[in-house]
Design a protein around this nucleic acid. Sequence first.
DNA 1: TTGAAAGCGCTAACAG
DNA 2: CTGTTAGCGCTTTCAA
Lengths: 377, 377
Amino acid sequence: MRPGVSPASTPGRILDTPSRSPDRAEHTVPSRPPAPLPPTLADVAERAGVSRQTVSNAINNPDLLRPETLVRVQDAIQALGYLPNRAARHLRTRASHLIGLRMSPAQEFTANAAMDRFVHALVEASREAGYHVLLFSGGPGKPDTTAADLVRGYDDLLRSTAVDAFIVTDTYLGNPQTRWLSERRAPFVAFGRPWADPDATHPWVDVDGAAGVVLATEHLIGRGHERIAWIGWAESSFIGQDRRSGWERAMAAAGRATDGLALSVTDTVAGGREASAALLDTAHPSAIVCASDTLAVGVLHTLAERGLYPGRDIAVVGFDDSQVAQVVPPGLTSVRQPLEQVALELVRTLEALLAREPYDGRGVLLTPTLAVRGSSG
Amino acid sequence: MRPGVSPASTPGRILDTPSRSPDRAEHTVPSRPPAPLPPTLADVAERAGVSRQTVSNAINNPDLLRPETLVRVQDAIQALGYLPNRAARHLRTRASHLIGLRMSPAQEFTANAAMDRFVHALVEASREAGYHVLLFSGGPGKPDTTAADLVRGYDDLLRSTAVDAFIVTDTYLGNPQTRWLSERRAPFVAFGRPWADPDATHPWVDVDGAAGVVLATEHLIGRGHERIAWIGWAESSFIGQDRRSGWERAMAAAGRATDGLALSVTDTVAGGREASAALLDTAHPSAIVCASDTLAVGVLHTLAERGLYPGRDIAVVGFDDSQVAQVVPPGLTSVRQPLEQVALELVRTLEALLAREPYDGRGVLLTPTLAVRGSSG
DNA sequence: TTGAAAGCGCTAACAG
DNA sequence: CTGTTAGCGCTTTCAA
């Protein structure tokens, strides 16, 4: 850091539209010579005075070497900063050590921040297993998306042997990928149960949404709430039904009635706002549990409009522990998915799969936690 | 979708701690035979009745082929679903067509959702240029991070020739990566100006934060606000100073005094909350511009505590157009970075760099926009 | 215009 | 325990 530098002193071209300025030649910096090529096995072998194969063994089967040879080779590796060329290794072993993950388009104007946290967790978990994450795009979100488009990204990566396996996240859309990948015999692990296809035998990891909502509802019951409402998604959503079942189960266990206390809407702020307004008018709940933070934020809108304070007048709980839940005043109590654990389990399952270990076909279900904040008292 | 299926019918193992159940053998599904290997050049050549090199030419230098041969080869490629093996091509051409991007740990309890949007935009822009994004981790965020740790991820990827180039995003921390990468002659483009190192000659793309704050401040001035306060970061932050200069510039242009109207704090919700409380007590502003959405959310906290309504009693503007800004009631007006354009420019610059085109050394500066919402009237 | 030969850097199989 | 040989699938000379 050089404290004296004015922020505006760095020369730059200000562009409103992204285009290069035409007078480039006047300011041209000659492109510098390329970086020297990294050392190869042969370089290490020569330095250590052994054959290339011995260096390869030193890396992949160290116990085959006599200790003193091993040390000599390792010293040479160290001195040269040698690391095996991934392309060559990939070509030879047919393993890229890359995991493919499709980024579905970012959902704006919602509180769904989970993807970011998940990607971080996955990158971290992959690293520890010696893998990197390769991102690709395409799929739902654009108009005119056909089934072929949906699997296109997967197909290309598979046919070009770019990745060893996939993590599939958007299983909830009724998307054809998991079935397609299964038929294709492509290695993959799904984040999300095969709700719509109970015959599916592919490995999966998921979070027990119902259990999370049970936690939330019991929390509210413990705070003395009698009339606890539910705002969820359309009946056709398996995940939505699962989460709702947690509310029903916890309410039944506590002997609370649920009549007229549930509403299904689309997963938008407006949906949550309107549903909560209707519920407050007709069902007079003292607490509302929502299937998502997006819906819960909608409830906060209604409360703000009516001069009611979340946590004091009406308790509100969301789902996903998004950044919004974490920072919105007075803090939104929310069900938090253990995404770090999910990532760990996904990678672990993937490793077993790639090692061709038999699969027990039962999936892994993880339990979420509840992040309690001001909106619930 | 099979409507009759109960959400709870899918068998799964519920785990509180991530561990595999021991009775795996009882439920074992034999691992299925591996997928057949994708077709190679030789397969296509045989089917088309030509040599392998001719197929290679059909892909890389189509004009070298007689049209009828070309059609025959293309038909064979189509029929077999052939795609070149990336590892082989990479090994031969020394180009992985992979761009490395380090994911710094997710910042929770802030409103910094920009990374998610940026990654999406980058993946999309890369795809159109024929590149994929490879994610790696490590770096700042963990305790005891040394300079060596900071460049470790880059170094490993470079030495193993895993990526062709990097996009470097966290230039603002005074991190050593850009300098290190430059010395190493590794191809990279930075998202962010080399604030701390005006001698740097590496290519970069950035967003004009000062211009964004000018937009925000002028917007408030246009709404009739006289006393517009600023909540920013510590003086040592170049980005913070840049953004602040926008406020100062717009205020000066409108003939507004700024004495006592600015405060510098850490970039947290609490920081924004405390700073706004102090400003309201001492400087009596009618509007507050913040260096980040996180700070702006802190202002919303103070307003909520005092029974004041954002937009009606006090106008608030943030920076980054995070999901929080988009959904928090009554909507937070915020400066939005053109991340899609940024990604496009980064990839474009990278392509030129990798093509060894001369670089004009001036960087690309893009102008943000202002997303106006309820918090500013 | 098309084909033959070589080799990118690595590892698996086998010989010594 | 170490070295030799071969080949993963591709592109790039160079001849035909």
